[in-house]
């Protein structure tokens, strides 16, 4: 069977699940690019390159890294922040999975039930999911592939995402840092970030200011 190529869309209203088309997940130490299994380092380098080439490269951190479930989550959050700073890349959180339609602030957040709204609004051309539960990530990735031309990537803490255009697996703190390392390495080699200038949405509430945080 020919490999089903997982490419940026718009593909159709309901693109098929890549798994249904016969695509398999990478084994430990591997990743995939467009559905083709490759060594993990190759996927990492490609991810860094795609991010630097993007005009609106955006990281979508999900509930597993936004919320302080444990110390590991906090360390991942730190590593993600460092990755964002390395670009710089924009950060837009997916704080939970509640279907917030039609009330969504697409500049501030992304929701798995209509991720296309955030992609469209901000003209995001390359994105990476991290800390999103597998089924919600797959749902979002398919919706994005269905209706937008955004290049999707997934840093998965489990077995990888066949529905992303690029994915690697077992995303530990070290692996997130490794991706940052790749971004810095490519930059040092002269690859310039093509990102448009942007203002990262930030909000420090009044009570925090008062506490001096």
């Amino acid at each position: 069977m020919d490999l089903y190529k997982v490419s940026p869309g718009p593909e159709s209203f309901l693109p098929p699940a890549a798994a249904k088309m016969g695509n398999v997940l990478p084994d430990p130490g591997q990743g995939h690019i467009g559905g083709t299994i490759v060594p993990e380092e190759e996927a990492m380098e490609m991810a860094a390159r795609k991010f630097l080439e993007g005009k609106v490269p955006t990281i979508f951190p999900g509930p597993l890294v936004l919320w302080h479930w444990n110390e590991k989550a906090a360390k991942k959050a730190k590593a993600i922040r460092a990755l964002a700073d390395a670009g710089p890349f924009r950060l837009i959180p997916m704080a939970d999975y509640r279907p917030k339609y039609p009330k969504i602030n697409p500049e501030v957040e992304i929701n798995p039930n209509h991720p296309n709204l955030t992609i469209w609004h901000n003209e995001i051309d390359v994105c990476i999911f991290v800390g999103v539960h597998c089924h919600q990530a797959n749902l979002s990735l398919k919706i994005i592939r269905g209706g937008t031309d955004c290049y999707t990537m997934a840093m998965c803490a489990q077995a990888g995402h066949e529905d992303a255009c690029l994915s690697f697996r077992d995303a530990t703190v070290e692996k997130i840092e490794r991706l940052t390392w790749w971004v810095n390495k490519l930059k040092a080699e002269g690859v310039k970030s093509q990102a448009k200038e942007f203002t990262q949405f930030k909000h420090i509430p009044k009570w925090r200011e008062a506490e001096g945080n």
Partner: peptide, 23 residues
Amino acid sequence: EKIKICEDLYDIMPPEYQDIVEN
């Protein structure tokens, strides 16, 4: 205890989440 936001990504959280965690 778990309904806290990771410090390193605190400032990018939508304000209503910050508010609900605090209040």
